[in-house]
């Protein structure tokens, strides 16, 4: 029995509310074993999302100013603090059944691992931080991670990898509540444009490696 994961690649910029609703519905159905594991890779239009541990002072701009700049603002039921998603950032939402009582931090390490490997494939050396979840280059974060485990087994939310994101969006917030560190993109690190479309296949392949699965267009749940 080979483990497979259904890959979903919605086109264009997917509104956060839509993706969020779809993700929760997938997770419920995953928990009921009505669908297989899925990985959705997409881009959002500009949106700020606040995790459950967000502190108000981490929002630098007012919500009005955010809306005026053309971005949306949502609360999200995931771990972590404030973050930004937008064009140029590859967002991954793996909805996986990790089995009963999985090691939740091991799952975070796997997400980091796949991004580190995909970064290396694109010629950018990335690493973990000893203290903070996420993927980094020096003291600048290139990929944010925030996750929820439904019933301590099915994953929700995921990672956002900055490929060629306009970093000015991050001026609005203290990303992830970290004051002394910055944010960067793969493009900035590589010294050339690294697009979301370039990273997609690399991230997909490394997801397969790290999670020991095969991505398929349509999958049915294992019996």
């Amino acid at each position: 029995m080979e483990r497979v994961t259904e890959i979903r690649r919605p086109l264009g910029l997917v509104p956060y509310a839509e993706a969020n609703a779809e993700m929760h519905s997938l997770a419920e159905r995953r928990a009921a074993n009505e669908v297989a594991d899925t990985l959705t890779l997409l881009e959002h239009p500009p949106v700020y999302t606040a995790g459950r541990r967000t502190q108000p002072e981490h929002l630098v701009w007012t919500e009005d100013r955010i809306h005026a700049a053309g971005a949306e603002f949502y609360d999200a039921d995931r771990g972590g603090s404030l973050t930004f998603h937008g064009p140029g950032q590859l967002v991954g939402y793996p909805i996986l059944d990790l089995g009963r009582r999985p090691d939740v931090t091991a799952y975070l390490r796997k997400l980091e691992e796949l991004v580190i490997r995909a970064g290396a494939d694109a010629g950018v050396e990335l690493h973990r931080s000893d203290v903070q979840t996420g993927v980094w280059s020096g003291d600048r974060k290139v990929c944010a991670i925030g996750v929820k485990l439904m019933r301590w087994r099915v994953t929700l939310h995921g990672f956002g990898l900055n490929c060629d994101t306009d970093l000015r969006w991050f001026d609005a917030i203290v990303p992830c509540g970290l004051k002394d560190t910055g944010v960067t993109t793969l493009s900035e690190l590589a010294g050339r444009r690294v697009s979301v479309e370039q990273m997609r296949p690399l991230v997909e392949r490394r997801f397969e490696d790290v999670f020991g699965t095969r991505l398929v267009e349509t999958a049915v749940p294992a019996a």
């Binding site: 995790g51 939740v104 996750v147 929820k148 485990l149 301590w152």
Partner: peptide
């Protein structure tokens, strides 16, 4: 993070009881 049941409420085995936050993961605990 949150109690999903109050004192006095009934619960089934494996029904989510509370949510814990650790680092970047929120976990519903059955």
């Amino acid at each position: 993070l949150k109690w999903l049941k109050k004192e006095g409420e009934s619960i089934d085995v494996d029904e989510p009881l509370f949510e814990i936050s650790t680092d970047k993961v929120d976990t519903e605990v059955p």
